[in-house]
Design a protein around this nucleic acid. Structure first.
Lengths: 352, 352
DNA sequence: ACGGTTAGTCGAAACGTTTCGACAGCCGCC
DNA sequence: GGCGGCTGTCGAAACGTTTCGACTAACCGT
């Protein structure tokens, strides 16, 4: 394995000159540069990452911190990971995947003190998330995918849940639906302060209120069984429901199954919209799900790019919300009897 | 940030003594050890990962190399990743995620020469995979998830496709099915030498032959649309099919959708078995899919553990096949008319 | 003609570990 | 009772970079 010394000797320059050619920290004449580059090429030189990291105090490694609980990742979270990995790689950085949840603050403190990470991207951020303080104390720049409660001075990228819920509700109301049930994550998840669950809940209440409608909300465990149970509960609470808006990628199939079991046809009897969903998942259902398509890998990419900008010295915070895009597929249609009904809220007829 | 020097000074010992306490490379008296540990605790000392890596020529970082193409990862591959990350983390190693496919051999050569990786786990291994040679030349230990064509001297963990296909076919034949269609990955994927596609194809032919049955095989693009097209093709080729065995996690929902569209009830008219599938995905279908449950995160964990054993100096190769476990759910049942039929192959009646 | 920049290069000192060689003391054993 | 072999510790030399200070030569404006 060739070192800088070898390159310097072959090019008949000093080691520092070789370094300057590589880093550009000082001007180097074209002639010298060419000699050095030729020597590098001949020796097939690659800088030693550890030595570089030690001397420069920059590892060129960023961490992707995510809880690694029970069930692994959904399709949406997986897209964050691949987007982040691709962006880091494209910028010449490395991405280490660390199973560090909001609870593992001690592990994180240890990790951060090792000076292995130039910066970190946090996934699955809770409204109160100890990881933020731990990293800040260790002086590790960070960007969130998601948001804590108080985001002053913090950089984040998140889904614009307010906007997403509003569009979904508008779509359903536009189709004439009035009795709309919102199926969220589990009660425990909501209580734990999981941002998407909390924010969509509030946004749903607000969006329904804007249309003069009463919000009906049911929590669901993240599983097909949870979805079935949720739909059963929903029908008990609102037997006349005509639409379901679901936040829960895992429960949605249980909801569809239970609807089928009970003989409710989709979308004739009940319309279904899935929120924050990847197109692949939406296509799995039959009929394919009308869904709010999540920005997916773009979110991971933007987070990493913002982090790298911080590492290059940019001091400003990057705060950005991306909406999910409504993609109408086969699971939504006009509300049963919508044509016969007057529309006191004034939401116009379905736009085509 | 405290360094070893600070610890040494506080404990009134030499720097090397502190190092020996940490690494255990030489014996240290209990009294000295206690002094040093106390000093470390007081200063909240954490070793600098870069310095350690440089001096020891071991980064404690392992790479997880996977192509990062179009569609991202399926649930099964995601499980590999989380399993690998958890195992690495538990052993005090870090796991870097590198988008390096079988084609990006030059990138990999560069990465390997940087001496950042102590070892690597390869995912999505092709039958001919240039990454193996690149890593071997760079002297980077590796473990495959999957297999190349020639595995002499190579460590790998893979799914036992032969066994898995055999069990799936036995299950269907045991239910009286004779006309069984195998839906594989796309023709291009098979042609590219993607191991799972090739091995299951061969295993299906063999398993069917053992039962005296003719294999019917259809490739499918990895999408719902691909599944629909495949089923259409299958029915054209074998209108009397009673069972579908599908390798393709993405196509399976298209197959189910097309069956529903054509009025074939599952499992009354057609039984469906999904291969190498995670339980969560199997539960998404209605009825829930009878499936060969993939070892999931265990595969990633075992691969990393084998790699770390190599790094600790173990010279033997680790070659292991894990079968998928048959989990009978609602998508399989007796073949239509099976009771009236004699069974010349001697496969007994369905076991209950 | 002269101080003041600037471009270009060099040597050496970090960076924070691990590891090698040396050595002191002690034990047990022919 | 000298000797080989342990145990425990130390000092110093790596490991392969980056970066700082210094130096030379050329060039500028006056």
């Amino acid at each position: 394995m060739a070192t800088m010394h070898d390159v310097a000797r072959l090019a008949r320059v000093s080691v520092s000159t070789v370094s300057y050619v590589l880093t550009g920290a000082r001007p180097i004449s074209q002639a010298t540069r060419d000699k050095v580059l030729a020597a590098m090429a001949e020796l097939d030189y690659q800088p030693n990452a550890m030595a570089r990291g030690l001397a420069s105090r920059r590892s060129r490694i960023v961490g992707l911190l995510m809880p690694m609980d029970e069930r692994g990742l959904g399709a949406t979270e997986t897209a964050f990971v691949t987007g982040a990995a691709a962006a880091a790689s494209a910028a010449g950085y490395h991405l280490v995947l660390s199973p560090v949840g909001a609870g593992d603050v001690d592990d994180l403190r240890r990790l951060a003190s090792q000076r292995m990470l130039d910066g970190a991207v946090l996934m699955e951020v809770q409204v109160e998330d100890g990881r933020v303080a731990a990293l800040q104390e260790a002086g590790v720049p960070l960007v969130l995918i998601g948001r804590t409660g108080d985001t002053t001075g913090l950089s984040y990228v998140d889904i614009d849940f307010e906007q997403t819920v509003r569009e979904a509700v508008d779509h359903l109301v536009g189709l004439g639906h009035r009795r709309i049930v919102y199926v969220n994550h589990s009660a425990a998840t909501i209580a734990a302060g999981y941002g998407p669950a909390v924010r969509t809940r509030d946004a749903f209440v607000a969006a329904m209120a804007d249309h003069g409608l009463a919000p009906i909300m049911i929590p669901a465990e993240d599983s097909a069984a949870g979805g079935r149970a949720a739909l059963t509960a929903a029908l008990a609470q609102a037997p006349d429901l005509t639409a379901v808006l679901a936040m829960n990628e895992n429960a949605i199939f249980g909801i569809l199954g239970e609807l089928a079991t009970r003989g409710h046809a989709v979308p004739r009897d009940v319309s279904v919209v899935s929120m924050v969903t990847s197109p692949q998942v939406a296509e799995l259902a039959h009929p394919a799900l009308t869904a709010m398509t999540s920005p997916g890998s773009a979110l991971g990419r933007i987070a990493v790019e913002a982090l790298l900008r911080h590492l290059e010295g940019a001091g400003d915070t990057h705060q950005q919300l991306l909406p999910c895009a409504l993609e109408v597929r086969g699971s939504t249609g006009p509300a049963a009897g919508a044509r016969d009904r007057t529309d006191p809220a004034g939401s116009g007829p379905p736009v085509t």
